[in-house]
Simulated assay, not measured.
Amino acid sequence: MLMAHPAVLTDLVRQYETLHGLQAENGGPEAQQRLDDVSYTLCIATGTRDVDTALIAARHRLPGARTEDDSLLIPGT
């Protein structure tokens, strides 16, 4: 699988967080469409199918992520 560059992931996560905040406040159609686009791009860039998993995967690949971070483990496994 191709891996997105950390700078690209950083930018996508920042965009998502900003748009998510704007959408919660304003909920305009432009903000919602951009949020949908960024969410989709995050999923493609991380090889995942939903935005929550994409955010976890992106953050795990960013500089400074702890290698012992267990946030990707499924409870009880």
Rank of each mutant, 00 (worst) to 15 (best):
G27K: 10
D70F: 01
T18N: 14
T46D: 10
D37Y: 08
A65P: 02
H60G: 09
S71Q: 04
Q15P: 02
L35P: 06
T53A: 12
R61Q: 12
R34P: 05
G21F: 11
L19V: 12
C43N: 11
I44A: 12
T67L: 13
P63A: 09
T10L: 10
T18L: 14
V38I: 15
L2H: 02
E17P: 03
Y16R: 11
T77N: 01
V51M: 08
A7G: 02
T67V: 08
A54H: 03
T77Q: 02
Q33D: 14
G64S: 05
Q23K: 10
P6H: 03
I74L: 03
D52S: 07
L19H: 04
S39R: 03
I56R: 13
A58K: 07
T77C: 00
R49H: 10
A45M: 12
E30M: 13
L19I: 10
A24S: 14
Y40Q: 13
E25P: 01
L55W: 03
S39V: 04
S71G: 04
P29K: 09
H60N: 12
L73I: 00
T18S: 15
T46W: 10
L12K: 07
L12V: 08
V51N: 04
T10I: 02
R66I: 03
A57N: 01
E30G: 11
T67C: 02
N26H: 14
L35Y: 07
T18D: 15
D69G: 02
A24C: 06
L35T: 07
T18I: 12
T77H: 01
P75H: 00
T53N: 03
D37F: 13
E25W: 09
T53Y: 01
M1H: 04
P29M: 06
A4W: 06
